[in-house]
Amino acid sequence: MSLTQDTAADGLYGLLAEFSSPETLLQACEKVRDRGMSAWDAHTPFPIHGLEKAMGLKRSIIPLFVLVLGLGGAAIGMLMQWWIATKAYPLVISGKPLFSWPAFVPVAFECGVLGGALGAVFGFLGQARLPQHNHALFNSENFERVTDDGFFISVEAADPNFDREETEQWLLDLGATRVEAIAP
């Protein structure tokens, strides 16, 4: 008897395997990585350290967004003050030059922090493909536990190595406590 129940006759998003603990999930992820799967993911209620290596994930490129937008923000902040102080509304204050840049450092710094923070947040949303309110995995009722205490691996049918029967058995052999077919 197969443990999976077909929820859609005409297609399949993939398989969702549940694991009982961070340890078993981590070991299973190494195996999935070593098998050369590409369209798969692990789902956990909290980030598990070492799992990104076990999955073979690349380093996030968010630092790049932060660097570029942070420096950009600071430059825009300084440029704005330069333009206001020398072009738009030039005022001589206590005989100082119009572009008295040391006085403009605090605002330029704050603008840089704002740029960097926006870079981090929107970089994260872009890289994590959020917001994405609809996803095939939400078809699984059991998947609701992913934000509580469930540890899952999802393997998509789109993966070239995917084979319904064989992959299911393989996931069970990796220690999955339960494998479920996900409708698209």
Binding site: H43, L51, H133
Partner: peptide
């Protein structure tokens, strides 16, 4: 935002 606890999301 449709968060699904994916490790690829957690990584970022």
């Amino acid at each position: 935002l449709g968060w699904r606890g994916s490790m690829r999301q957690w990584n970022h």
